[in-house]
Nucleic acid binder design. Sequence first.
DNA 1: TAGAAACTAGACTACTTAGTCTCACGAATC
DNA 2: GATTCGTGAGACTAAGTAGTCTAGTTTCTA
Lengths: 206, 206
Amino acid sequence: MTIRPTSLEKRRAVLAAAEEEFLSGGYDTVSMDRIAARSGVAKQTLYAHFGSKEGLFLQLVTAMTEETGDRVHADPLAVTSAGDLPDALHRLLSRQLDLVLTPRLMQLRRLVIGELGRFPDLARTLAERGPHRAIDILADVLADLDARGLLAVPHPGQAASQLNWLVMGQPVNDAMLLGDASIPSAAERDSHVRAAVRTFLAAYGT
Amino acid sequence: MTIRPTSLEKRRAVLAAAEEEFLSGGYDTVSMDRIAARSGVAKQTLYAHFGSKEGLFLQLVTAMTEETGDRVHADPLAVTSAGDLPDALHRLLSRQLDLVLTPRLMQLRRLVIGELGRFPDLARTLAERGPHRAIDILADVLADLDARGLLAVPHPGQAASQLNWLVMGQPVNDAMLLGDASIPSAAERDSHVRAAVRTFLAAYGT
DNA sequence: TAGAAACTAGACTACTTAGTCTCACGAATC
DNA sequence: GATTCGTGAGACTAAGTAGTCTAGTTTCTA
């Protein structure tokens, strides 16, 4: 429907405005008129691009989910000796926590959870591209460490889930209910991850 | 404003209808007309009792939160020997998980998270009466076990949080995003808790 | 039994919203 | 140079909603 270069700019402007609007309120509190006004675009252009409010919401949230999910991925763990293990795990988990624990992502998560009834597929996508993917990657890492004798992990999937929630559980769930102000500082996150990794290694170390 | 016994019945009927309505949709999708119709009560009665939609929502969610929070409380842990410890912890955590992981409470949690922007106090109350309280109680139990030499827990608060999220993290967060169908069966919950307690004891046992 | 308190039914106001339509304008294409 | 496509501005429709008001009815109490 749209090929002209100006169209892409309009599209981006709409998505940017929609992100601000939807993330600062619920699905229902946002109006298409406000998004149009905020993006400096006529209402009809908005409908030409996205069809409906649902369509705009779906495209926005899907794009945000995939964009973030892609960043979790590539992160190889280079462990040469048993002595490296605590620091290497700490680095890996810290990176994941830093990536997830941002106001923007926490608000996206709140939004998707609140709209579970209306848009269940959105929430499923977020779960798959987010926590499930992170845990799968972690499971591969743990299985590798087990194979190399650096850890004793009989059930890598289970252990990965445990490590993940040992790290993510408290901060993510606090953020859900207490808002962005509850997000810990970098120093607090660091010592939180350190404690979690220590507990994990005490249970699964060799 | 209301003393007559029939008034209490009306009030209960309204709260019951409001619970069904609010839990099966968001705050905005619910209409006062539907709540009135569902509870078999005139709209004016509804306003006489609760003042406004906000008032009704606040009273409903507060009541549900307190009611559930109260059930978490009284649950003494009777451990006589080190051999009892795994089973005793398993019983305690299983009970908490069973209490939390119900469709009704999961939906309440989704609702409150989704309305964090509009009703931040509600979410704070839910956090305090729910997870925070549970973790505080757990911390007391762990401190006691430490004092008796059955565990080695230098930071009871931190360890309690770790144990809590080791157990609650995955099922609660899956329920948030995947819906009630993802709630595991009693048997699955049992083995999940068993694995979590095993990991915890491997890290903190003496 | 009389009066007051609580209730019912439903009309009504004032407002907001998603989505459509009309018409005019500017730029790219033929 | 004419046409077409995307756009802008804004009126418009149709529907829904919170909250108020009126008028009549039931139910408890003194």
